[in-house]
Nucleic acid binder design. Sequence first.
DNA 1: TGTCGTTGGGAAAGCGCATTCCCACTGCAT
DNA 2: ATGCAGTGGGAATGCGCTTTCCCAACGACA
Lengths: 364, 364
Amino acid sequence: MAASTLTEVARLAGVSPATASRVLNGSARKPGPGVSERVRQAAETLGYIPNAQAQALAKSSSGLVGLIVHDIADPYFSAIARGVQEVAREQHKMVLLATTGGTPADEKDAVAAFAARRADAIVIAGSRSRRPEDDKGNADLAAELDRYCRNGGHVGVVGQAIVGAGALDGYHLVEVPNEELAAELAGKLAAGHSGEFVIIGGPEGLITSDDRIRGFQSGLAAADRSPAEVLRASFNRAGGYEAGLELARRIREARASGASKEGEKPGLCIFAANDVMAIGATAGLRSQGFRIPRDALIAGFDDIETLRDFRPGLSTVRLPLEEIGRLATLSTSGPEAPDGDGHHDGGAAVTGEVTLRRSTEWTP
Amino acid sequence: MAASTLTEVARLAGVSPATASRVLNGSARKPGPGVSERVRQAAETLGYIPNAQAQALAKSSSGLVGLIVHDIADPYFSAIARGVQEVAREQHKMVLLATTGGTPADEKDAVAAFAARRADAIVIAGSRSRRPEDDKGNADLAAELDRYCRNGGHVGVVGQAIVGAGALDGYHLVEVPNEELAAELAGKLAAGHSGEFVIIGGPEGLITSDDRIRGFQSGLAAADRSPAEVLRASFNRAGGYEAGLELARRIREARASGASKEGEKPGLCIFAANDVMAIGATAGLRSQGFRIPRDALIAGFDDIETLRDFRPGLSTVRLPLEEIGRLATLSTSGPEAPDGDGHHDGGAAVTGEVTLRRSTEWTP
DNA sequence: TGTCGTTGGGAAAGCGCATTCCCACTGCAT
DNA sequence: ATGCAGTGGGAATGCGCTTTCCCAACGACA
């Protein structure tokens, strides 16, 4: 038994398919009440479910929103996904999920797949990269996106503009003031910590990471502190863990050389470019017997939900992740917001909040 | 500029649409090499992207996998989602996401939407409910699913059979031995704890929760212990937190009445029906000044990834969540596995592992 | 009473593709 | 030279729905 079609419903109701279509889907023309009732009855008894594919084909709009993330199980992305999902639901759309691990080539494939499905909008979360080895991939991705936009698609980008993408209509950006917030964080940390700073960042070229690092450094500079050394690792917990091990080694050396002592105010304050790295670093340090904030201070970025139950409370920058997902999605469908701030589209901007917790608070 | 169509490609290549279709999509009939090359060229220069909607309509198979979860930002679900996503990717399918908060009515809507999109398969994660107030919703959901299956759809269910769904072909179950594992956990905990047990469960009727509670009780019984009292709360962190507050009150009373003393081996061992509840409960207790495992022992269930960085290490039952997602998805597309175990389909089963950590380990 | 605007419904033309025929042509055995 | 299977390509149909166009019936107005 195949699913019943509009034609069958129409026949049962004794009307034409055209009429049936008019009553069952929100058409401009409203048929007479008697007819409507008959059609609705027929649809009910047949258990009619409209074929969305056919609808999409006929009116070339699919009711689909594509979402591209690095990893859906990463709390940062799943929070954004929740926001996207909410808006999609409100708009009676469905979200199509693609996870890419951040590889531009995979992201390009995802965009192509979304385009093939004629998704009404695409939301891209996750940092773009500027690494030379990704140039080719980025160019391809940008080309794919441009094509998608030229064909009438809308893309909402979280964080930063797509490298190399044209300034087309259809691009919408949710700006995250990573640099400013990182600077502010640095300032506040510098006020409470007189020792050294070190940064755990993602791979060089990862824009979000770079922005945060740059911001942090400039914040340090503004507080008359010398620039922090930057450790590079992958932009996830594993990377943070690695870096944590390395830092443990250094602390141990400092202790051995007498440059610092256990029980003293820690000489090191770590800034990890995102929370999961901070968590990883904490785990790495802990595995070597070091404690936060006893032996080192540490701060992260994002304020992912997981932190609520992380001990010690991690200092970080609160980002309204769910809201970011919402905004990115809304921007793709919203009214063509009047442009006033120099962007080529009505992009939205969010703000964050520096949140100091116990991980950067040393008490004798 | 609208996206170019197969017909345009065909015209450019100087062939018929039929031929173009044959070369660009894996058809059984392979056109001659000269023609193929021309068509491919034309497609390339036009930037042709096949319209998946039209393809789906024509061959009635959409390459879509629907995934239904309660909340995509819950680590339990996002881990499963990751598994589903992986398999989908391997099979060159895309996943459609729906989050329902566990409401049967919403789940029914999601199934209908997936059916409308002619999803090749639907994976339902998240516990079904048996509560009377959900009877109607469950029945509707089951009816919707039955219809979907009868129309040739495949559904993969995580955990337990759909209440009220017929024993149709098309249902595939990934069995999770919640009851057995909970019993095993109870046994191991009873070996190390001579005091009282209390269970924090989800709402009565939530099958996963009920299964785990029943298992835990029978495990206690097997160890000659009296049944634990069951506290009911919502099946998430907030529910756990509530329960944690209540338990804090009780511990305080016990202390006040002299029934227990601070610094003594805790008289209470808590079993939360899932990890996020356990985490919530821990937070609730902590907010009242109580510590784990100093003032109470606690264990959870699932071993979500978040636990890796949760202190104290939470005793739990390790479930291969990602694998569960994978299996559920594979089961919907796999070979019609020979049936031998009495199920009406080739359902898969996973196993878990009791994992004891510091949260249930009291040291003076 | 005749004409004109309105209304409610049907017929038909796609939307972009897959696929089933069908045809022209080749190479081979008879 | 005739028949045949086999091959590579095109024409046409249909997937299920929307939407434009068209037509009949109806009321109102002069």
